[in-house]
């Protein structure tokens, strides 16, 4: 059927209505407006800022940084978390409104990273304090890896909004550079 043969929208109101599931529509809106809480504590934060800059521009995915947890759907923990800071992470997470999502960015937030062997003060993984939905390995992960993780998270947001299913097992971004230590979820190489 050629385009010209398609019925033209007329004045009949029935012809101007799009029928879709409200849930699908809301999910579409939600997954395209994942506002994130800036939680950059160390060098990974630079890469997070880079992801927000003009070259990678996560704004085009509807991701706008928020300075307060009350307005954020998503918390990106980018950087080293010390034992002293861990309580702050927990408090901020508790202040976010449900449904809340957490992305752990970089080896430090995943597992303590380069500090896990020698440090007395660094927390070995932010998942000891808050539930993590997506792990992004790397020291630091490139912005592409962050965007990869966010795309996986959007999938989860849509499933949650349309089907009410909240995946409990964390997603691990694969193929990212992971130089320091292991991270949960990725199988150890067999010796």
């Amino acid at each position: 059927m050629a385009v010209a043969d398609l019925p033209k929208p007329g004045n009949d109101p029935h012809e101007q209505i799009v029928l879709t599931a409200v849930d699908e529509f809301l999910a579409w809106g939600k997954e395209n407006s994942l506002f994130y809480l800036l939680f950059a504590t160390a060098c990974c934060g630079i890469e997070l800022m880079q992801a927000g800059g003009p070259r990678y521009d996560v704004d085009r995915l509807g991701m706008i940084p928020r300075a307060t947890p009350r307005q954020a759907d998503l918390m990106i923990v980018a950087g080293t978390i010390t034992h002293k800071m861990a309580g702050v992470v927990r408090t901020l997470w508790e202040q976010m409104t449900e449904p809340r999502w957490v992305v752990s960015m970089g080896s430090c937030a995943n597992s303590g990273g380069p500090f896990s062997k020698w440090s007395y003060s660094v927390l070995n993984g932010v998942d000891k304090y808050v539930p993590v939905d997506v792990y992004i390995p790397g020291c630091p992960p490139r912005p592409e890896a962050l965007i990869d993780g966010v795309m996986a998270l959007r999938e989860r947001v849509r499933r949650y909004r349309t089907m009410g299913v909240r995946d409990r097992d964390p997603h691990v971004v694969q193929g990212a550079d992971c130089r320091f230590g292991s991270h949960p979820g990725k199988p150890e190489p067999q010796a």
Partner: peptide, 8 residues
């Protein structure tokens, strides 16, 4: 919170 992850 232990200083090493499980099995580490």
């Amino acid at each position: 919170v232990p200083h090493l992850r499980e099995g580490q």
